[in-house]
């Protein structure tokens, strides 16, 4: 197993206030090349879990093992390796890129810091990365504000891929994007995952997105997983009442039209009448 989490707890303490238990006993594992979706509404602990996995927030109890090694007892060199191979994509793509650096500088920086390639090969690697995420070389000298949100999200992916990660945690990577751009980013995620044997943890509240990308899905509520399993099973035959409520809340075009007695069949026939 790439990542194995057992009975993980995350608790926030602040003076004079009751401790807040954001994650209460979560267990799961993710193998190489697997994709897990974590769904739930805001405040359920999804982001605390993500922060703990990438090592920004120490767990208060439980075990987090990566390739068999316990995160808390890693030697500095092992931890640096962990920090490199586990990467995160954020919802706010524009906000997660330094506004005062060009795309080229952003990508070169990570390559230098982690000494991914010899100095002479940096420029070539940057071009490879751009190509990988489907961006033209013309964006290299642009600043984040000069390119679109979708392009910024691609830069985030390129920056992750520069470090040759094994696991990417994507926290609502497409919820701020227009539907056509969202489709492109999701297609990119799927291709990257297949071609690079990447493991992906996709945090989202959009069950249709999770269904499209993930092998397995875990439904989180009040700091715990209330249901998990293969995404088709969980989403087609939800067992937990909360999963059913989440599913019912998704505004789905296909389902809504079916309820109104119309079939959404433009794609197979596509004649536009």
């Amino acid at each position: 197993m790439l990542l194995n989490i057992q009975n993980l707890h995350v608790t926030y303490y602040s003076p004079g206030q009751k401790p807040v238990e954001a994650v209460r006993g979560v267990s799961f594992s993710v193998g190489a090349g697997e994709s897990l979706g974590i769904v739930g509404e805001s405040g359920c602990g999804k982001s605390s879990l993500a922060k703990t996995i990438i090592g920004l927030q120490p767990p208060s109890a439980g075990s987090l093992r990566f390739e068999g090694q316990e995160l808390g007892s890693m030697k500095p060199a092992a931890f640096r390796h962990y920090r490199r191979v586990v990467q995160m994509i954020f919802q706010d793509a524009v906000g997660s890129i330094n506004p005062r650096m060009t795309v080229r500088q952003t990508l070169e920086e990570v390559l230098h810091v982690h000494q991914m390639v010899p100095a002479g090969r940096v420029a070539g690697r940057v071009r490879e990365l751009l190509d990988r995420v489907g961006l033209p070389e013309t964006v290299l000298d642009a600043y984040p504000r000069e390119i679109s949100g979708g392009q910024c999200q691609r830069i985030s992916f390129a920056r992750c891929l520069a470090l040759e990660p094994r696991l990417i945690i994507a926290d609502e990577p497409v919820s701020a994007l227009d539907v056509s751009v969202q489709a492109r980013i999701l297609n990119l995620v799927r291709t990257l995952q297949k071609e690079l044997d990447l493991a992906i943890i996709l945090i989202s509240h959009d069950l249709a997105v999770v269904r499209n990308i993930c092998d397995r899905v875990a439904v989180m509520y009040a700091g715990q997983f209330v249901e998990s399993g293969p995404s088709a099973n969980v989403l087609d035959a939800p067992q937990h009442a909360y999963t059913r409520e989440l599913l019912a809340a998704v505004p789905d075009v296909g389902r809504a039209l079916k309820e109104r007695g119309r079939t959404h069949r433009f794609a197979p026939t596509c004649t536009g009448e």
Partner: peptide, 17 residues
């Protein structure tokens, strides 16, 4: 419409952008 991921679509269907 083609770009929207659907709940009842099978996994790994590429979305049409």
């Amino acid at each position: 419409l083609s770009a929207v991921p659907l709940l009842d679509a099978p996994r790994n269907t590429p979305l049409q952008d």
